[in-house]
Design a protein around this nucleic acid. Structure first.
Length: 423
RNA sequence: GGAGAGGUGUCUGAGUGGUCGAAAGAGCACGCCUGGAAAGUGUGUAUACGUCAAAAGCGUAUCGAGGGUUCGAAUCCCUCCCUCUCCGCCA
């Protein structure tokens, strides 16, 4: 979330930036500033009243010790007003703070100055396109048919045991999943990321910390009996490792990677475009998360983007990089690059990675700080990116590499799969 | 799930109503000492909010969380959360 002090000092700029995300609620910003005013005022009054009451209590203590009983009793009788006032003021302060909190989380992160204006995916800026789009013969099959033909993925079985969007991977299909996960993790390790394995369910505080709660509540599976959410991405548990943490300057940058299944309800998205592996309720993903010094975060973002692109190149996939426009960006991001691979049989781009800089938006919620060169605490910047999400990579690999003899496994993966062909 | 114990600062750990943001030790930082290091020694070492242009300073809050008793709570009472031990169950 944004910091009220920043909003107060940079109101015009904040409004201007928010407009890029098509967020035009001037009143909300004004309300926040007004709330903050009354918060300060109330706190001021509460503090000075408390100070008086504390001083009186101290004096009473001294009187008791020195045997001035009568004087102590007299002073005691005067404390009632303070008590009452303190109670009222702290209740007021509480209410104000709650309201402030409720409202400030309604503001999305401010987009970086390079974020293009726009309302939908149409307005995203294509930063670069790389690789040759493969040209397939006329009888080429989409991945869901290939998956059936070679007995790699069984969607119906998944429906039987769970429901739509929970595929069952079998034989070489299962091995391909495992191979990709290992490959991605190894590459991350080579790039200096520390591997972690994490809980797949998180509590409410974690969901709040990374920004899934309260607004994206409906996107997560909720285990009501224990008040836990199934993670929609490893970003949530990994980033929350650093909730309420003050890092030393030399501990930055923190670089973690983790493989987890991801669970998404995807309520309301059905239709032809979600066929096969295109959109699932459960899928596998390797995630990168960094906690960095604010001065470095945009450089780091480029580095993460380069890392993801390296993976796509090694897999021999044609891809493009998009800079998301204000309207298509996530609520919490300041700048996001999406990577899309070209799915040759479906003749469309599939999003396989999203790399974002959140600046202090998450760290402010997380209370994730570091001690800067002056020895003061300062909010760190957080970033994350998929490297990579498996299903659409698998879809693209199957489709783009199909031949008369079967599906050719990219060379780089063969040490992991231990087979060269799916046939 | 049943019974019991307990949650204090970076850590260990003292503290059962006032002088406690909190002893002591360790760690860490800086200085002295040393040819250098160790040892020794001295000083410092929480966070947030408010006040201030800012810093210093000052004020307030925080000893798992929330509420209560009291002039005054780390300390007493209530609720919740968590951890540990034993029993039960179990990959």
């Amino acid at each position: 979330m944004l910091q009220v002090s920043y909003i107060r000092d940079n109101k015009e700029q904040v409004l201007e930036r928010l407009a890029v995300k098509n967020f035009k609620q001037t009143e909300l910003v004004d309300e926040l500033i007004a709330l903050d005013d009354s918060r300060r005022q109330t706190q001021n009054r509460l503090d000075s009243t408390s100070a008086e009451a504390n001083a009186a209590a101290k004096r009473i203590g001294e009187m008791m010790r020195t045997g001035q009983k009568a004087e102590a009793e007299q002073l005691k009788s005067q404390t009632g007003t303070w008590k009452e006032e303190i109670k009222q003021l702290s209740e007021q302060l509480n209410t104000i703070e709650q309201e402030l909190q409720q409202k400030i989380v309604l503001l999305p992160n401010l987009p970086h100055s390079s974020v293009p204006k726009g309302v939908s995916a149409e307005d995203n800026e294509v930063v670069l396109e790389s690789g040759e789009k493969p040209v397939l013969p006329a009888n080429a099959l989409p991945h869901w048919e290939l998956a059936a033909k070679y007995n790699l993925i069984d969607f119906e079985l998944g429906v039987k045991i769970t429901g739509a969007g929970f595929p069952v991977y079998k034989g070489k299909g299962a091995k391909l999943q495992r191979a990709l996960i290992s490959f991605f993790l190894d590459e991350a390790e080579k790039a200096g990321y520390n591997e972690v394995m994490l809980p797949l369910m998180v509590n409410e505080a974690s969901g709040f910390g990374t920004g899934q709660l309260p607004d994206k509540e409906g996107q997560m599976y909720f285990v009501g009996q224990d008040n836990l959410y199934l993670i929609p991405t490893a970003e949530v548990p990994i980033t929350n490792l650093y909730r309420d943490v003050i890092l030393k300057l030399d501990e930055l940058p923190v670089k973690n990677t983790g493989y987890t299944p991801c669970f998404r309800r995807e309520a309301g998205s059905y239709g032809a475009h979600v066929r096969g592996l295109n959109r699932l309720h459960q899928f596998d993903k390797v995630e990168l998360v960094q906690v960095v010094h604010p001065d470095q975060s945009y450089e780091v973002l480029e580095g993460m983007s380069a890392h993801v692109q390296g993976l796509l190149q090694k897999l021999g996939l044609a891809y493009r990089v998009l800079r998301l426009c204000g309207g298509d960006m996530g609520f919490t991001a300041a700048l996001t690059y999406d990577m899309e691979t070209w799915s040759a049989a479906q003749q469309r781009w599939l999003e396989v990675s999203s790399v974002s800089n959140f600046e202090t938006y998450q760290s402010n919620r997380l209370k994730l700080r570091f001690r800067n060169a002056e020895g003061k605490t300062q909010l760190a910047h957080t970033l994350n990116g998929s490297a990579l999400a498996l299903p659409r990579i698998v879809a693209t690999l199957l489709e783009n590499n199909q031949t008369e003899q079967g599906i050719k496994i990219p060379e780089i993966l063969v040490p992991y799969t231990k087979f060269e062909w799916i046939d």
